[in-house]
Design a protein around this nucleic acid. Structure first.
Lengths: 222, 222
DNA sequence: AAAATAAACGAACGATCGTACTTTCTTCTC
DNA sequence: GAGAAGAAAGTACGATCGTTCGTTTATTTT
């Protein structure tokens, strides 16, 4: 292996491409961290607890990240990857247009209902936790949140350009309302232990979408 | 003063009706506690920090509540009282009907924008924090949340009964959507430090209300 | 003003927090 | 398989957490 090849390898990856032991452990830690943080928040996440639950020494957990803030940032990135896997990728598997929009919203609602995170959507929890706490963690969360809305808007725009969505529809506004309704539905369902809120959210989302897919052109501000 | 009169006096109130010193202090503590919790969460709220900021001894703070959970519960009740004062009472000052509905939504949006809590709406923060954490605190938050939606629905029903709102409108669904949009707008405004989200929320709320106040009867699922 | 009660203090507890070390063991590379 | 590199353990630190206690100071009632 030449020097150039060597310097190009990723950290945590062995010479023959497999994952290094440390990288596997790091991943195990982050999976658990995202689970905990979805229920207890990113501050409730503690290195000692992580170590106890995973039967690793506290310093063993710590050295993977170097600081709690770095652990929190890595956890946010991990959660974003999980979200992409469960929601974004299923949508990308469908051709652009209204079908993809439907696939996206379906996958999103399935993700909210399914216990992929034990404490509900990771981003709903942590966004409320950090929205008034400036810093790198908040920025990371805000970034993920922005990416998500941008992706939703892109899917809607594709459907708009193919003529399946009213050309006069205000897409950022639509994205905002879909986001609001879906996340609030899931939060209420959890808080009141009542799945009916998922249905309310679904109904609202269907209505929003129906209002901009009517054949007869624009129909009010709806 | 008879024995009966004596036994009927409230705790923390002196014989001549004034507030006892302890009750005043307790109130000061709870005001600060609600402020902190709106930004840092009810778990981030710590007795030691409360004591330092208010220049009271830690034990002095503690004995007012007896446990952290009791402090959290008292803080939730205090925040609910503040919310009522800022949002519910201004609406009750207006005669029942569509006018009261408008007053309610106005007061609510003003409350979200104004820094009555430094960390945004207390209930948005704490609901996301406790929605997956069973216990008395979650029950208290869920109760307040339910009361709030019930009150909103009552105002809407008054307007419906007076013929100002479409009789076929699904009020619980409308309440859910108004709630979702308003709270998410405020949360996003804080997270991204962008007041435009308040306007998005306002636009969505106006549209929802307009859809059920149209003179020509029901117009689609809106 | 005296007696009774309430409120606040100050010190200490065990536990846990994040972080910093050194040491031991495992894993990868050559 | 030897040597290098990496991962995990172990221990200890200062700080802060919620809580308990006994004491002292304020306030209220008689």
């Amino acid at each position: 292996m030449t020097l150039h090849e060597r310097s190009c390898t990723l950290v945590g990856v062995s010479t023959d491409g497999r994952l290094l032991k440390g990288e596997q452990t790091r991943n195990v830690i982050l999976c658990r961290a995202a689970d905990i943080a979805s229920a207890e928040g990113l501050e409730g996440l503690s290195i000692g607890r992580l170590a106890t639950e995973l039967r690793i020494s506290k310093s063993g957990v710590f050295t993977h990240f170097g600081s709690k803030e770095e652990l929190q940032l890595a956890t946010v990135r991990k959660a974003a990857a999980v979200f992409r896997e469960h929601v974004v990728e299923p949508a990308l598997a469908v051709p652009a247009g209204l079908g993809r929009v439907r696939a996206l919203l379906d996958a999103w609602q399935r993700y909210q209902r399914a216990p992929v995170f034990p404490g509900g959507c990771f981003f709903h929890s942590t966004m409320a936790e950090f929205d008034a706490r400036p810093g790198r963690v908040r920025d990371a969360i805000a970034g993920s949140q922005g990416d998500w809305r941008a992706f939703m808007e892109r899917c809607l725009r594709e459907a708009q350009e193919s003529g399946e969505i009213d050309p006069s529809a205000d897409l950022p506004q639509l994205v905002f309302e879909l986001d609001a309704v879906c996340r609030t539905g899931a939060a209420n369902a959890l808080l009141h232990d009542d799945p009916a809120f998922y249905d309310r959210a679904a109904r609202a989302m269907d209505a929003r979408l129906a209002a901009v897919t009517a054949r007869g052109g624009p129909r009010g501000a709806g």
